[in-house]
Amino acid sequence: MEVVCTVCPRGCNISVISEGEGYAVQGNGCMRGKDYALRELTMPMRNFSLALSVAGGDTDVVAVRTSAPVRRECIAEIALAARALTLSAPIKAGDVIISKVDGDSDLIAASTVNLKEGT
């Protein structure tokens, strides 16, 4: 199987060939690429981010992201759940928005929203 690595911007073309019990991996530029390629075969994992509405803040939007890669098949469901949330300021970058969205990965704030002045 051919895999384009997304670990870094280089985008290595990696070949994974089944070899007896295991797999032979070729074309990876680094070890992380090998892990990625093998993972891609069995259970693709991704980080992703979203913009969510926030009430009462100095801006109306907070950026959120997964703290660690989640299973690719879970992304749509997590996004849907996150967009259904009602969030209020203040939110600090790093705050957990939803804990344990998949495995140990949390959905965390990637930006800070302060309370609107005068509130």
Partner: peptide, 25 residues
Amino acid sequence: LNQCIHNGFGLTLFKSELTGPEYAA
């Protein structure tokens, strides 16, 4: 960077995968 809320920034400079706002911060 503030509007680039996707992840994937900073692998070279900060050796970690950040979103745009985090990189800016």
